[in-house]
Design a protein around this nucleic acid. Sequence first.
DNA 1: TAAAATACTTTCATAATTCAAGTGAATCAT
DNA 2: ATGATTCACTTGAATTATGAAAGTATTTTA
Lengths: 138, 138
Amino acid sequence: MLDNIDKLIIEELSKNSRITMKKLGERVHLTGQAAASRVLKLEESGIIEKYTVTINQAKLNCLIHAFITIRLNNPYHQSFLSFIKTQEHYILNTYKVSGDGCYILESRFPSNEVLDQFLVSLNEYANYNLSIVINKQN
Amino acid sequence: MLDNIDKLIIEELSKNSRITMKKLGERVHLTGQAAASRVLKLEESGIIEKYTVTINQAKLNCLIHAFITIRLNNPYHQSFLSFIKTQEHYILNTYKVSGDGCYILESRFPSNEVLDQFLVSLNEYANYNLSIVINKQN
DNA sequence: TAAAATACTTTCATAATTCAAGTGAATCAT
DNA sequence: ATGATTCACTTGAATTATGAAAGTATTTTA
């Protein structure tokens, strides 16, 4: 289904999604038009989901990066999930998981104070386990 | 440092980093040229780190998405970290964390068999705790 | 083996980008 | 206060990329 050229295209777009089709074509030994039509197919097939940007959160004063494992005692998750939706400013990702917890949240906070406030509110809905990121390995 | 227009620009680029500068300008009521020069500044200041693409891993036959919490018994992490580097095909991200574990790995595997093999190898270096993602909440 | 489909190239009109020059407002030194 | 500098922007023009259409060669299908 995906040949080597498609894989190269995905690799190049992962490195820099704003590359022009012409240059992308050069990298994979195709014309810009041929590259563009392959990319269009990758989009239509849903393999390429979206083009996005990675932001240095620390420079935006979101210094605290944390994973929060959630344990819910009751089977009614909706109120917890609704609460999380109100906090979307801080929550990068919410994963429903098997294993130790019910959910894993990936989160960003500008300060310990804000994190503390969040955790106090969170505690009304769930027990949690906090892992603060010290460093992301390259 | 960042005004509202910059925030809007970051938001738009997060939604679609392949937007043309002309259209991006329209969204924030600027000319394409002005939008491009703001984007350039965001890049030079390091706030925009890179433009990338999100890929539907399931469609690439990487069906299993898991978080693995790592506990190391000994203080010599290097052999573990070297091992992880050899497995980069499966490891999306490695975070050093405070809290329950020493590291959190975000990983992708094409099958249970491959995951099993990985865990067997991993066990030579560390104890772990596996959380398989059932679902990512929108 | 003929027809159809696929993946590509070439060509060209259209559109976006980039560069240079110019405007107006805010800041700064005198 | 005022002239100079800087800043963020616009305008205009040359350069470059895109997208559509037509054409080619190879593979697939019936």
